[in-house]
Design a protein around this nucleic acid. Structure first.
Lengths: 198, 198, 198, 198
DNA sequence: TATGAATGAGGTTTCATTCAT
DNA sequence: TATGAATGAAACCTCATTCAT
């Protein structure tokens, strides 16, 4: 049904651009409307309010983000490769849509408590994808069996998130995807020399 | 000099509390003034504007945060122990001042570009502390010699930050410091079984 | 002709209900349309604008109101009985259609100058009915011959109107028609003891 | 205290004028502010919102209205004269402040349910004044002893209100106070010839 | 230094009305 | 006739900041 609603996507796409360029607070609804080529009031036929544009946009984009990630991961045969793919997909997708990256890394954080909880629930399926990789790795004896999954997931997500945020803060000037291998190595093997690990 | 300005600290302390309880946007200057027991206008004798309260507060608190961390780290004899101490200090200090934790993890992010750059510059010395530990570890052959320090620093900081944010979002309900050891193990040794590391 | 336009009456009847339940300002055109089972745009095939619904509805209802009143009055043989009948009809008809009562006593007043003048012109025939009763009463030497008719009409209408408004404001909880006799006595004989009238 | 708040009265006086000239809905807060010679925001230092201006204004004016009326009434020695004085004061005071008359007779009615209940509570003391006159008249055997006071009060108030509204609707073109005597006669003695009263 | 009354810019949202189908 | 998606004007109120005292 939503596919038959071109204005819905016009508005979302305009919003990503406008939010990225002006920040959430600097993006007046009228500015988004103008960018989308619709009247101000039309926005409210598709979205409850300004915040709803942000969160709905995030849901749509995150849905695609996860779908594509899962699709690629499913073609890999072990947890190690899956983690590598996850990192690669994470960096690649955000590299390819820098406006989206700006919005997810910066604008989306500028929100109140309620919105933040909504964001977390949208993010949840992605975190589950990470959890599943970890469980698979443990089952297959690839990963340590004493891993506390939530903690590891927080390390993985926190690491990726911080790296992307730094990249965005540096105006996306360097090639984010160049880091994929090293990040994977770090997460897999830690920073210690093998012979020193107790 | 600042010690002779008790209202300066009154306002900062009131601001931490008010920001933590109401969020940045929900914290009207008049609310902070009332909590600090001064007139609205007095705020502007000590701070340039509302954002300046936030950033100055962060500078003050982060200064102490770093000083204490460095002091503890300096008493450790190798990079490995220093990293453990850093994690411990990070979690302990935020555990002990939950209002500050709320402000640093949530409210501080709700800011515009310029503020964010200022925040980064305040954060810089802390990131340097991490870098120094890493360099020491590499020099002492404790850590791998092919580590890309900025990346590792981002992993470490991103991990700690994400863990603390999760804890704050869960209303600080559990004991954050209980995780110190495991986080250290993860960062040091990664998630892979040693015998599987290529 | 209008009888061939069922939607016209559908809309009017829906409007009475919606106005009564939500007030004029709380009754969006789309709400009336939905209640009438027609599309928003259809409203504008039958009515000039939202106010026109209100005034047209009032015209229709007031027309019936007056017709029924006149019909009953014509069966009475003197001004005194006619006045009693007018009071009775006034209270009875509004008692029997409480939504209409709410609209006439409350919502209809929430209007701008122009609408108010239109309302007055709709009301005029009713006021003429009162005037006619008064003139008949004076001619037949039933009523004083020094009555200033407009003033008396204002007393009569003002009294009835105020009583009905009070009843509506008290949620139509008591039996309005029970007051008919006493109101008639008051208007006819005033409040003074007969022996005290100079 | 309020006497030390000149802006409070500046705003109220400006509001009466602006409401009378433009109607409640046509009176933007900025228009009232400009008329009062203050900034828009200043309005909100003294009033909760736009409706609060209307109701507060009505409270202030009605308070004076009642005080003056009661003061005059207290100098009269019987219920009959007191009623005459009440009518006289009612017409005189509204004649002398036509803007106030417009606001009370027209604009104040354009309000939602909640406001209407507030208005009624402001009006209550005035209705009590009428009730007291009626009770005194009954006790002194001047008025009939079978009067149902609420009903009579509604007749009296409804009559006065309707007469004033008609006068306002006719642009206050004629002398309202000229009607005082006749209105009093009507309310006291009714419309019937004495010899016809059963 | 300290006050706090006053300022006034700025934006989200509603909803009556239109018009292409 | 009938539809209902689209329009876009319009205004209340907040709150960071100032400045006369």
């Amino acid at each position: 049904m939503k596919n038959n609603r071109p204005k819905y996507y016009q508005i979302i796409d305009a919003a990503v651009k406008v939010f990225a360029e002006n920040g959430f607070h600097g993006s007046q609804v009228s500015k988004i409307a103008k960018a989308a080529g619709v009247a101000d009031g039309t926005i409210y036929l598709y979205f409850k309010n300004k915040e709803d544009i942000l969160i709905t946009m995030f849901k749509e984009k995150m849905g695609q983000f996860i779908d594509r990630t899962v699709h690629q991961i499913n073609q890999k045969k072990n947890a190690n490769e899956k983690l590598l793919t996850l990192i690669e997909m994470h960096f690649t997708q955000l590299s390819e849509d820098r406006n989206l990256a700006i919005v997810t890394q910066l604008e989306l954080r500028q929100s109140n408590y309620e919105l933040r909880y909504e964001i977390n629930s949208v993010l949840k399926p992605y975190l589950t994808v990470i959890d599943n990789i970890l469980m698979e790795g443990i089952n297959d004896k690839l990963f340590r069996d004493n891993l506390k999954i939530p903690l590891v997931r927080q390390m993985i997500f926190g690491t990726l998130d911080e790296i992307v945020t730094n990249w965005v803060m540096k105006d996306c000037k360097y090639d984010l995807t160049a880091e994929v291998e090293q990040v994977h190595q770090l997460l897999i093997g830690g920073i210690c020399r093998i012979d020193k690990i107790v």
